Simulated assay, not measured.
Amino acid sequence: MSATQLGDVTPVAVAPPNLERRDLSRHPALQLGLPVLFAAAVLLLWEFLCRAYAVPEVILPTPSAIYARIISAWPFLVQHAVPTGTEAAIGFLLATVLGIALAVLLSYSRWAYAALYPNVIFFQLIPKIALAPLFIVWLGIGSPSRLAFSMFIAFFPVVIATLTGLNATPPDMLRLCKALTARSWQVFLSVRFPYALPHIFSGLKIAVTFAIIGVIVGEFITAQAGLGYLILFASSQAETSLIMASIAMLCVVGLVLYGAVAGLERLILRKYGH
């Protein structure tokens, strides 16, 4: 090849192989900032539209009116948030323990799987809210009925997610454990349960929201305290701003419980190297 031909070749810039494009969506500041900016934009649009079209406060209060209501009724909201959050947390913990225990039984016993799993799916298909009055008939109008219903509604996601995780263990790992003559409980603690943890926490994140829903449904029917009762009371008085303030406080309770589950997930998965 002549020098002239070499001169006609257009040089191509080649990036060094060790330079990779950073995924900016995973930057901590953006992970926190983008949801906050989006929520702020929605609230500003909400405020603007309500003022521009003079929407009555009884129909839809502005975010500023809701904020003012939260500030004025803060001690009252906290007082009602405590029983709601406490019962939701207890119901979630009960559902977690019983759900994981049942999933382990279904995973290790073919007889239990054949007998129980179809019934688990059957009960999952029943609308849960339709069963709420039965819990009141069986357990009364007090806290036990709300706890039982909260546990019942949060129970199934834990069972399904845990069972999926336990059955997703790589067969090669199980064959290796068998070759090393590991016992069943050693395989469970060292291999199957660690591999199932991401699935388990996926189910727990769903279950914690269901637990709150179960408590709120119970409070709609029987309670004399709690955010569900406060929402029902405010609706009977056409206090829309108080309804929205109670819903905002309910979101805070949900975020606290969900954040606790997510924080525990990060700690445990970091320990097991996921």
Rank of each mutant, 00 (worst) to 15 (best):
P83V: 02
T84Y: 04
G85F: 11
T86M: 13
A88I: 01
A88F: 09
I90G: 01
I90E: 00
G91M: 01
G91C: 02
G91K: 01
F92P: 00
L94Y: 01
L94M: 12
L94I: 06
L94W: 01
A95L: 01
T96V: 06
V97Y: 02
L98F: 14
G99H: 05
L102F: 07
V104R: 04
V104Y: 09
L105Q: 07
L105Y: 01
L105R: 08
Y108C: 05
Y108I: 04
Y108T: 12
A114K: 12
A114W: 12
A115L: 15
Y117V: 01
Y117S: 01
P118N: 08
P118K: 07
P118M: 03
P118C: 04
P118Y: 03
N119Y: 13
I121W: 04
F122S: 11
F123Y: 14
L125D: 08
I126E: 02
P127T: 02
A132T: 02
P133Y: 03
I136Y: 10
S143Q: 09
P144W: 02
P144K: 04
R146E: 01
L147A: 00
A148D: 10
A148F: 10
A148R: 03
F149C: 10
S150E: 00
M151G: 00
M151F: 00
I153N: 00
I153S: 00
F155D: 05
F155T: 02
P157V: 05
V159E: 04
I160N: 07
I160V: 15
A161M: 11
T162H: 11
T164G: 13
T164V: 11
G165E: 11
G165C: 10
G165L: 12
G165Y: 07
T169A: 15
P170W: 11
P171L: 12
D172P: 03
L174E: 14
L174W: 04
R175G: 06
C177M: 14
C177S: 14
A179T: 14
L180C: 13
T181F: 12
T181M: 13
R183H: 13
S184V: 06
S184Y: 04
W185T: 08
F188M: 15
F188E: 09
V191H: 07
V191G: 07
F193L: 15
